[in-house]
């Protein structure tokens, strides 16, 4: 297996406060990795560092074999064409229609406008977004905006998809569709998925491995069964401690 992401001793300080502390992590190609943690744990920040939107205060980040800490702006732009990201809170351009937003990542591909529009319409159909082509992002509901963001992130067939707060704001029917779509993309293109979530529910079912982040520290990495076992041990320990007290 090839490591698609390598994080080595990542520290991030914001306003004198350490918000990420000594994070080291290795994620293989084709893997689904969930970052689980409460609000403010540093999940979004970690995803932003992997995307190269922020630079770490210390440590080394390698994405798709490229060292982000020493990559030039041009290299970063090229790299981002192989990485898709769905951001928390949305990042669609309100001045553009849905289809124009979807076409954005294809602009550098040299495809004709007609071809780009056909590609955008195809992914819209796959994600059941037909009929929204000419709407503006601010006219969409939260759930539809998330789906459009996902479509934009997937339109270039990325090797790596980063999703901040997976399945957040989506209705159960959309959750099913998206899970199915992601599994298909992963199988066909060996896409790696890294997502953050603060819920221990449905989203975790698609993860091969889970990383638990709390107060900027990575407390656990392993399978869902391993997490459950660790939680049980933690609970037993707490009971034992309470009993002894």
């Amino acid at each position: 297996m090839t490591a698609i992401i390598k994080l080595e001793n990542i520290f991030q300080h914001i306003g004198g406060r350490c918000v990420l502390e000594d994070i080291s992590l290795c994620i293989e190609a084709g893997e689904s990795f969930a970052l689980l943690g409460p609000n403010g744990a540093g999940k979004t920040l970690l995803l932003r560092l992997i995307m190269g939107l922020d630079r770490p205060s210390a440590g080394r980040i390698e994405v798709l074999g490229r060292d982000l800490t020493h990559a030039s702006p041009a290299e970063m732009i090229r790299l981002r064409r192989s990485v898709g990201m769905v951001m928390q809170g949305g990042s669609l351009l309100n001045g553009l229609s849905v289809i124009e937003n979807l076409i954005l990542p294809l602009r550098a591909s040299g495809l004709s406008t007609d071809r780009m529009q056909r590609t955008a319409r195809l992914i819209m159909t796959q994600l059941r977004l037909d009929g929204l082509e000419n709407m503006r992002p601010y006219e969409l509901s939260g759930g539809l905006s998330r789906k459009v963001e996902l479509a934009r992130a997937l339109i270039c067939r990325p090797l790596l998809l980063l999703w901040d707060e997976l399945l957040d704001g989506l209705d159960p029917a959309s959750v099913g569709e998206i899970k199915e779509h992601l599994q298909r993309e992963k199988k066909t293109y060996n896409m790696t998925l890294i997502f953050s979530t603060h819920q221990t529910g449905g989203a975790l079912t698609i993860a091969h491995r889970i990383g638990v982040l709390e107060s900027g520290r990575l407390l656990f990495t392993g399978s869902q069964e391993g997490l459950e076992a660790a939680e049980r041990r933690d609970l037993e320990l707490r009971f034992a401690l309470q009993g002894s007290l």
Partner: peptide, 17 residues
């Protein structure tokens, strides 16, 4: 406004300067 609404981030993640 693009910075405030994270649209600038949207452009960056789409591979656009």
């Amino acid at each position: 406004s693009m910075v405030l609404n994270r649209e600038a981030d949207g452009l960056i993640v789409s591979g656009i300067n």
